[in-house]
Write a protein that binds this DNA or RNA. Structure first.
Lengths: 348, 348
DNA sequence: CTGAAAGCGCTTACAG
DNA sequence: CTGAAAGCGCTTACAG
């Protein structure tokens, strides 16, 4: 027996019939004698025949592979997205090719090229932070390859997106603090140049307005790099300023953790004196002390939805290119904001 | 202009020359007139020609894709491995196809089939927990497709592996506790049926022996499912038993966290009364209070090494099939075991 | 310097 | 019921 995987040709030769017949027998085509069919199938089984997907791709002009561009696989949120993509793709008989941009424009462009060369049937992209020139993506659209953006919204590109409702997530978080009885809520905000950061500030502001609570500019503190230390310092200053504060909504979980530290250091009780809620719902939220309330983002679902959209595109289902699918966030209440002691179903 | 990506044929037609010439011009073959070369390249550029990797794969009998089977992408350790694989593969001009087995034998077998159908040049596999029948992997070997195991050792298979030295990791952790002055060290062990769990028990035992410390059977407590709660209870019992304990080596970080809780509950100080060290070095280790010492596993490096091994196999470099590459772990000292107050370089 | 032909593995319209 | 031929996109030995 020759090495390597067996082909239709090998089977045809051994059985002294043509490739066409083998191909048809394998696919249970009508008009194949039961005997040949049986002989072919037995041999295919014996030699463990597997159709060569490469040859099929070339012939069908369709690879059944979708390409994914993502900043990093090691971040929890991204890995849940990938998981959702994998599951949905597998269900549809698709394979997935993943490239990490590690937030580099150059690497993103290279990856797009590699994936286009591989003739993926569609592209799912979470654009890198560094990317502002969109030419490489524009080409994808021009060449008619289906593309869907996820996570980070890209403007001015003729392709659908699936994103998370950052405004609503922030709104809900603040609304939750208010329901718990907080009156003076500070916001540790993200850098002002990112859309998501601005959306969350808007959500914070709207929630206060809707509850007829004053918006104080000095209660919104920008944390540029989102580290724990930075947030801890920011919180230290807020507390030292003598302002009355009984709630904190942090733009991310790390910052919330910094706030937790600062508040504990000041000898105040969480959540009794100050309630805290973060954003993203990292895995560690349930492990720290006190456990941290947070706004969870549906990464897995986002992956699935992006995949579903791309399949629609691939199958030419009529789909509005400007579709923006917005997924809901969820407030996960843990000790750090649970003033009322309401029992919360185990959210993990 | 026709839709879809441009082919050599399109360029040939437009220039009224043959495909062969276009192909050669594109590749700077000698014996092509400068004029044709220039014309071809300009057109290729204009139409953004990208070689069709599918056609190339079919012709070259090599896809430049490697397949990866991994239990889950959402676990931090696994995602670092994937990251290592991606980086190394990209460096060599390879793409990566990832399938998650989610610890299911059936899904693993299906994924192997899909990847073999796709004619990946090599397979990197972290076997599922459920897998005991190895027939699907045996076939891969028989069909001559290069395969490398990583993370979990698979016995009786003719393929190289790259794993982590669990014995040494455990040994080092216990040795570290001893150096910090611990005399009575308990071990929250993993389930006895897993090789890694047994290796770590051996490491624990050897370290004690080499330091002429007694090995007490009742200081080794099995934690079946490795949850925080389970470990907390186990630790509660150990403390309640009145045994003198001043150090704990936990088989995993979650268990260590449980131990931390239990010890705090008992009003004992960490690390002064009891020092604690975990295993795996999850991201949360530096975030909990006190921050948790742990044994870090080189996931990224493991991915790179596995990739390097598979490339050697693919390129038929002489490589011993029984190669087992063993990677070193590292003890990362944080507050939970730092009795001597030695300053530790920031490890992250 | 350039082209026609064959082949990678598969499918399918066409012919018998 | 079965086979020969063409074609997916590319490369390369062979011929000129």
């Amino acid at each position: 027996m020759k090495k390597g995987q067996v082909t239709i040709k090998d089977i045809a030769k051994e059985l002294n019939i043509s490739c066409s017949t083998v191909s048809r027998a394998l696919k249970d085509f009508p008009g194949i004698s039961p005997n040949t069919r049986k002989a072919v199938k037995e041999l295919a089984d014996k030699y463990n025949y597997r159709p060569n997907a490469v040859a099929l791709s070339l012939r069908n002009q369709r690879t059944n592979v979708i390409g994914v561009i993502i900043p990093e696989t090691v971040h929890f949120f991204f890995s849940t997205v990938i998981s959702g993509i994998e599951d949905e793709a597998m269900k549809e008989g698709y394979n997935v090719m993943i490239c990490q941009s590690i937030e580099s424009f150059e690497r993103e462009a290279d990856s797009i090229d590699a994936l286009m060369s591989a003739r993926v049937d569609g592209l799912l992209v979470d654009i890198s932070r560094e990317t502002s020139d969109l030419a490489h993506l524009q080409k994808v659209v021009e060449e008619g390859v289906p593309m869907v953006f996820f996570d980070r919204l890209v403007e001015g590109m003729n392709a659908p997106s699936v994103i998370v409702d950052d405004y609503q997530g922030a709104y809900d978080a603040v609304e939750h603090l208010i329901q718990q009885g907080c009156k003076d809520i500070a916001h540790l905000a993200g850098p002002g140049n990112l859309i998501i950061g601005r959306k969350r500030i808007e959500g914070y502001t709207s929630a206060l307005e809707d509850n007829e609570m004053p918006i104080k500019k000095d209660f919104i503190v920008e944390c540029r790099n989102g580290t724990q230390e930075e947030a801890e310092q920011a919180m230290d200053q807020l507390l030292a300023s003598g302002k009355k504060i009984d709630g904190v909504f942090a733009n991310n979980d790390m910052a919330a953790l910094g706030a937790l530290k600062s508040i504990k250091k000041a000898g105040l009780k969480i959540p009794e004196d100050i309630a805290v809620i973060g954003y993203s719902d990292w895995q560690f939220c349930s492990l720290v002390n006190p456990s941290l309330s947070s706004v969870s983002q549906p990464g897995y679902e986002m992956g699935k939805e992006a995949c579903k959209l791309i399949f629609k595109e691939i199958n030419k289902t009529n789909i509005e290119k400007s579709t923006i699918k917005i997924l809901d966030t969820e407030v996960v209440v843990r000790e750090s904001s649970n003033k009322l002691g309401v029992i919360q179903p185990l959210a993990n």
